[in-house]
């Protein structure tokens, strides 16, 4: 395997493996947030704001993988 194919393979793997964790995390986060909203609809505004903060923070992990893949493809 030459260096180029190794880079492309590594980029694909980093994106694919790096998406697993954030996907699970987002699923848990949103399901818990929806449960809380269903249990206490009167504080749904606060829960929704915090849910979006959590989504932003969790999703960033997948985007780091995306950036690593980009670096592997175009820069390294």
């Amino acid at each position: 395997m030459d260096a180029d194919s190794a880079r492309l393979l590594a980029a694909g793997i980093s994106m694919g493996v790096g998406s697993i964790g954030p996907a699970l995390g987002l699923g848990m986060l949103i399901s818990k947030a929806l449960e809380s909203i269903a249990r206490q609809p009167e504080v749904s505004g606060d829960i929704r704001v915090n849910m979006f903060i959590g989504i932003g923070v969790t999703e960033a992990v997948a985007l780091y993988a995306f950036v690593v893949a980009l670096i592997l493809i175009f820069v390294a």
């Binding site: 932003g56 923070v57 999703e59 960033a60 985007l63 995306f66």
Partner: peptide, 13 residues
């Protein structure tokens, strides 16, 4: 880093 990369990567993707 996370603040900038999050927005950049979302829009780029």
């Amino acid at each position: 880093v996370s603040l900038s990369v999050r927005l950049f990567a979302n829009m780029l993707a």
